[in-house]
Deep mutational scan, measured.
Amino acid sequence: MPVRRGHVAPQNTFLDTIIRKFEGQSRKFIIANARVENCAVIYCNDGFCELCGYSRAEVMQRPCTCDFLHGPRTQRRAAAQIAQALLGAEERKVEIAFYRKDGSCFLCLVDVVPVKNEDGAVIMFILNFEVVMEKDMVGSPAHDTNHRGPPTSWLAPGRAKTFRLKLPALLALTARESSVRSGGAGGAGAPGAVVVDVDLTPAAPSSESLALDEVTAMDNHVAGLGPAEERRALVGPGSPPRSAPGQLPSPRAHSLNPDASGSSCSLARTRSRESCASVRRASSADDIEAMRAGVLPPPPRHASTGAMHPLRSGLLNSTSDSDLVRYRTISKIPQITLNFVDLKGDPFLASPTSDREIIAPKIKERTHNVTEKVTQVLSLGADVLPEYKLQAPRIHRWTILHYSPFKAVWDWLILLLVIYTAVFTPYSAAFLLKETEEGPPATECGYACQPLAVVDLIVDIMFIVDILINFRTTYVNANEEVVSHPGRIAVHYFKGWFLIDMVAAIPFDLLI
Rank of each mutant, 00 (worst) to 15 (best):
R4H: 15
R5E: 14
R5W: 15
G6I: 07
V8H: 13
L15T: 06
T17R: 10
I19T: 05
R20G: 10
K21Q: 12
K21E: 13
G24N: 12
I31E: 01
A34F: 01
R35N: 08
R35E: 13
A40D: 10
Y43T: 01
D46E: 13
G47H: 09
F48A: 01
F48M: 01
L51E: 07
S55R: 06
E58S: 04
E58C: 01
E58F: 06
V59D: 01
M60E: 03
M60D: 01
C64M: 05
H70V: 07
Q75M: 05
Q75A: 14
R77K: 07
A83V: 07
Q84H: 03
L86W: 01
L86N: 01
L86H: 01
L87V: 14
E90L: 13
E91V: 08
E91R: 14
K93Y: 07
F98G: 01
Y99F: 01
R100E: 01
R100Q: 01
K101S: 04
G103I: 01
S104P: 03
V110F: 01
D111M: 05
V113T: 08
K116N: 14
N128F: 06
M133P: 15
M137W: 14
G139H: 15
S140L: 10
T145W: 09
R148Y: 05
P150F: 06
P157Q: 06
G158W: 13
A169W: 15
A169N: 15
L171D: 13
L171S: 07
A175H: 05
E177K: 09
S179Y: 05
G183W: 06
G184T: 05
G189P: 15
V194K: 01
V194L: 01
V196E: 01
D197T: 01
V198T: 06
L200W: 06
L200V: 12
A204D: 05
S206K: 14
E208I: 05
D213H: 15
T216V: 05
V222P: 10
L225M: 12
G226N: 15
G226M: 06
P237S: 15
G238F: 04
P240M: 15
S243H: 15
A244M: 11
A244Y: 09
P245M: 14
L248V: 12
A253Q: 08
S255N: 10
S255D: 05
L256E: 11
P258I: 07
P258Y: 09
G262A: 05
S263W: 15
S264Y: 08
S272A: 06
C276I: 13
R280D: 07
A282T: 05
S284D: 09
A285H: 10
A285Q: 05
D287W: 09
I288H: 05
A293H: 07
G294Q: 13
G294E: 12
V295R: 09
P298Y: 01
P298F: 08
P298H: 03
P300K: 07
H302A: 08
A303N: 10
G306T: 05
M308Y: 12
H309M: 05
N317M: 12
N339D: 15
D342F: 01
D342R: 07
K344H: 14
F348W: 06
F348N: 04
S351E: 14
D355V: 14
E357G: 05
P361A: 05
K364W: 05
K364A: 12
T367S: 11
T375H: 05
Q376P: 03
G381F: 04
